[in-house]
Design a protein around this nucleic acid. Sequence first.
DNA 1: TGGCAATCATTGCATCGGCAGTCAATACCC
DNA 2: GGGTATTGACTGCCGATGCAATGATTGCCA
Lengths: 154, 154
Amino acid sequence: MGFYDTTNLYPDSSIGYLVKVCNQLGMAHLDRAFADEGLSAVHWSALISIHFGRAPTCAALARDLAHDKGAMTRMIDTLEQKGLVRRLRNDDDRRVIQLSLTPEGEAATLRCRDRVIACWNEWLTGWTHDEITTLIAQLQRLRATLETAAPCAA
Amino acid sequence: MGFYDTTNLYPDSSIGYLVKVCNQLGMAHLDRAFADEGLSAVHWSALISIHFGRAPTCAALARDLAHDKGAMTRMIDTLEQKGLVRRLRNDDDRRVIQLSLTPEGEAATLRCRDRVIACWNEWLTGWTHDEITTLIAQLQRLRATLETAAPCAA
DNA sequence: TGGCAATCATTGCATCGGCAGTCAATACCC
DNA sequence: GGGTATTGACTGCCGATGCAATGATTGCCA
């Protein structure tokens, strides 16, 4: 019925394995690219998410990055100590703490973004526009499925 | 020149972001699917790699999974304590220690594999055969690039 | 043959991540 | 309005990860 069965699930043909390895390699590359900024790739992904206003709060940020909520609190602590992120209590809903970038945070985020763009353009050398947009669309589809998926049956 | 520029790098259109989120969500799902086996998704990826003979040694396993070598030693420690993996010193090259699965390790690996197959078939419901093989091919291409890529310029 | 570089496994150290539980504030529902 | 459920931020705990350094072994090359 499905695509995979016990005769064709090899690492090289497994989407999960490939996604995992691509993620690890890409993040490791970016970690080094950001080293002189004192930031990690995970830090930057949080900053850029705040930059685009996708995650006004700590909990939303954790959801957006599929990250642990508790760990996110501590990550914001360090980014705040570095002077890149501000916390501001919301008066309408006093549970939430609004996150925003400081001017220094904004600047660092954009500097890192430029490096990310350079890296990806280099990695995607030789790809056609269609191939790239197809990959993006398929990953978006997969993400949507994984976000709403119930715990695996069986 | 490249695909990305400062006007179109949004998280939703960023391959890096999408790969990261898909990886985190997929691994979290599998972690729960393996919970009653006492294994994590990372554990299983190591076991299945040994199962297929891609990684006879600890260092090769770390490379195959894009994982840290030191952390891999400790992971093998725990898998050995669980009785799933055996270490065997190689006599030809006395630096290396051959890894192999015990019968229990083999059995647990296959049990988990069946769950992985069930999960992915569920997640890929509605995808055509071509869409899936296209995604796999593109991820393979990306992995190959990232594996051989030099540290990012700029 | 002898010395240098490379590889492998391992370990210490610092940090990070996921999980569970706490407390406060809000939303929902009868 | 009152009680319950939900949400958000935070913390402690444990295990895992990345990095750097070590010791042992092998390969390479003059």
